[in-house]
Write a protein that binds this DNA or RNA. Sequence first.
DNA 1: GACCAGGCACATC
DNA 2: GATGTGCATGGT
Length: 215
Amino acid sequence: MKKNFAPRLLKIYHTLHAHYGPQHWWPAKSRFEVIVGAILTQNTNWKNVEKAIANLKAEDLVSPDAIHRVSRKKLSRLIRPSGYFNIKADRLKSFTDFLMSEYGGSLKGMLREKTVTLREKLLSVKGIGPETADSILLYAAGMPVFVVDAYTRRILSRHGLCEDKASYNQIQSLFMENLKPDVRMFNEYHALLVCAGKTQCASTPACPGCPLQGY
DNA sequence: GACCAGGCACATC
DNA sequence: GATGTGCATGGT
């Protein structure tokens, strides 16, 4: 990244923070629940994910061991509200399989990995792509990795900070090469972009009432 | 009834 | 490397 985008990125962050306030992400009670949510929310409304997680909790299945043991059939039935339930059941299974084989089922063991190493390993798990991997790294592991999603791309291109076809890695680099690694801030920043994307900056070029108007 | 939502894998060119 | 398609529910 040749140009210094730090001032603009910081200004956007502070503007969104002042407008929307702290978002207190990730909405989950445990690290493992963060990971389950990260997989279930793929291309899906969070409200639907909450229903699926509530079903899992009702059966006391929100643990690596429980997910590993439960039948694929029962798992997909319980997560049905989150959509793509057959695929997502496989993805939850592939993650717990990975956790079992690589770390003996120990999430703590997994979280002791270096960030770069863990990211590569997560990306090798079937069903975990860049956004899901980075959500796990940031929100479950507490590592300073910036999460990029559809809202991030839309808002940044809308405000002329990237091409609308920019790749995931390009957008992630934009943040990580211009901002100091700061878990708290990366956490809030991504959450705020999602919040803004949901409300006003979503897709309209005019973006009426957008708190980022003029940037 | 169309359209969208905090993606990803896979096929094809 | 870019582009297209299947996966599926629930809210607007």
